[in-house]
């Protein structure tokens, strides 16, 4: 029985150790690609609209070093992004967090798109309705057959003399 317990513990350790080793790496082991995978979702705080992964300033270099350090400590990408947002404000994120007033950034374009699509479809529908409705009045408003009631007695007399309709 004891042998099984020791075997089980050994197996558990064998499974957990690599994870522990991975969680704590040396800073030098973190590759530039790993750093840039996080950095591209952040923006340089001191320059205009420059993603962190392509920013040449000292500030960005410092931030990339910090990302490298946090990756080495085993932090995940969302954890690192949260850290930067908490310390430097959500404006450093390339994608604003989907909460509070920031929701307008996500909601307004969709609403505008739906609204625009609705107006466009409705306008098309109205145009189509108008297109089918317009010829109809033209047809009904064709001039009525001309009749002259003053000529009717003469026409009746001619028809009678000619024997038409008899």
């Amino acid at each position: 029985m004891k042998v099984w317990v020791y075997l089980g513990l050994g197996l558990l350790l064998a499974l957990l150790l690599p994870g522990a080793v991975l969680a704590q790496r040396s800073v030098g082991d973190v590759t530039a690609d790993e750093v840039n995978a996080v950095a591209r979702d952040l923006f340089c705080p001191t320059c205009e609209s420059t993603p962190l992964d392509v920013c040449p300033t000292q500030t960005c270099q410092d931030w990339r070093d910090l990302i490298r350090q946090q990756l080495a400590e085993g932090k995940s990408k969302p954890e690192i992004l949260d850290y930067f947002a908490a310390n430097f404000g959500p404006q450093v994120l390339s994608e604003p967090p989907r909460q509070g007033f920031n929701l307008t950034v996500w909601v307004v374009p969709v609403v505008l798109l739906l609204l625009g699509g609705g107006i466009f479809s409705f306008s098309l529908y109205r145009l189509k309705q108008a297109g089918t409705a317009l010829p109809a009045p033209a047809a009904t408003q064709s001039p009525p057959p001309k009749t002259n009631t003053t000529l009717d007695p003469y026409r009746e007399q001619i028809e009678r003399e000619l024997g038409v309709g008899e």
Binding site: P45, A85, A86, F88, G89, P90
Partner: peptide, 10 residues
């Protein structure tokens, strides 16, 4: 102190 979330500089 750090300027947390950039609030003071803002």
């Amino acid at each position: 102190a750090p300027d947390l979330r950039g609030l003071i500089s803002k």
